[in-house]
Amino acid sequence: MKKTFFLLLVFLVISCKSTYLDAKKSPVLLDINKETDDNAFVNLKNYSNDFVFDMKYATTDNFLNEKVYPCGECFLRVKTVKSLLEANKAFLDKGYRIKLYDCYRPIAIQKKMWKIVPNPTYVANPKKGSIHNKGGAVDITLVDSAGNELNMGTKFDFFGEEASHNYLNLSEEILANRKFLKEIMLRHNFKSFDSEWWHYNLTNSSADAVSNQKWRCED
């Protein structure tokens, strides 16, 4: 009986540890190509200084009106980071860079979102899970060399037809900006999401497992 209890305790301790991702920053940039497990979760900030981060769910500036991430980290699977780095290089060559609003999202947060907006056009049903919950999705826009966001016609997380790639009643500038973002992302192993100009899924990432790992913030 004591042995069974001890083994159960060890299992619980290991399980608790495994549910957290480490947000500690590396003192030097790491090489994503040296990561051997494409499905492992890593922090994008450890692999590049060329992104802009505005992690909305680590603030109250989101449709939940609530801070639901402990801090603004961007965790993704290694294979997602590899493709995202290549896409950002393509943008950098043209004088722009990716600005991130959201990356990996624990399924517990997905459930909160679904309670507020139970509409699968805009929020994935947590019973199935979002690609965000699998570490294969990013919510992004572009900024120019001065850090100014390109005009995409709506704000991030705008729930309306104007946010759709199929909505064409927009200025030539907005349509060109959306096309620019979409074309380069599609060339680098991502798929667009029709109702949200900002949302991109890594190709074939839907087969990955949903995760509920959270992260501890660096002191």
Rank of each mutant, 00 (worst) to 15 (best):
D139P: 02
L175N: 02
V78K: 12
A176W: 00
C103F: 07
T60W: 09
K25M: 10
W198Y: 11
I14C: 12
S171Q: 06
S83L: 09
N65E: 14
N33I: 04
E162V: 12
D219C: 13
L181R: 01
N33P: 05
Y167S: 07
N62C: 01
A40V: 11
G160T: 01
E35A: 06
D144S: 03
D208R: 08
V52G: 05
F5M: 15
A90T: 12
C16Y: 15
K134I: 05
K89G: 07
F193N: 11
V117M: 03
I184E: 02
A87Q: 03
L64S: 03
L181Y: 00
K134A: 04
N148D: 13
F5Q: 15
K45F: 11
A163L: 03
P120K: 05
G136C: 04
K214E: 14
F159I: 00
A163V: 00
I98W: 07
W114C: 09
Y167W: 11
L150M: 04
V210Y: 04
N201W: 11
N212V: 02
G72R: 00
L12P: 14
A23F: 05
S130C: 05
R216K: 14
N177P: 05
L175T: 08
Y96F: 11
D93E: 12
K111D: 09
F5I: 15
L9R: 10
C74D: 09
D194S: 09
N46R: 12
L142W: 12
W197D: 00
K112G: 03
N119E: 00
K191H: 08
I14E: 13
Y122E: 08
P70Q: 07
N169I: 10
N46D: 13
V10T: 13
H132M: 04
D219Y: 14
D38C: 05
E66W: 05
A124C: 07
D61Q: 12
T4D: 15
T36K: 14
L76T: 03
V81H: 13
E162S: 11
G153M: 02
T80K: 02
L175E: 03
A207P: 06
I131P: 14
G129E: 07
K191E: 15
K127S: 07
K67S: 08
S26L: 04
W215L: 02
K182W: 01
N88H: 10
E162R: 10
A124Q: 09
T141V: 08
M113R: 09
E196Q: 11
V81Y: 14
N119R: 01
V78Q: 04
V81D: 07
K34N: 12
L8M: 12
A146C: 13
T141Y: 06
E149D: 13
A163T: 02
D102N: 15
F51I: 12
L30T: 06
K179V: 00
A124E: 15
N62G: 03
S18V: 08
L142G: 03
A163M: 01
V42P: 10
A90W: 07
N62I: 03
N49C: 10
S145N: 15
K79E: 10
K191L: 15
F6Q: 14
G129L: 00
D139C: 02
D22Q: 00
M185T: 00
V28L: 09
L9A: 15
N151G: 10
H188E: 03
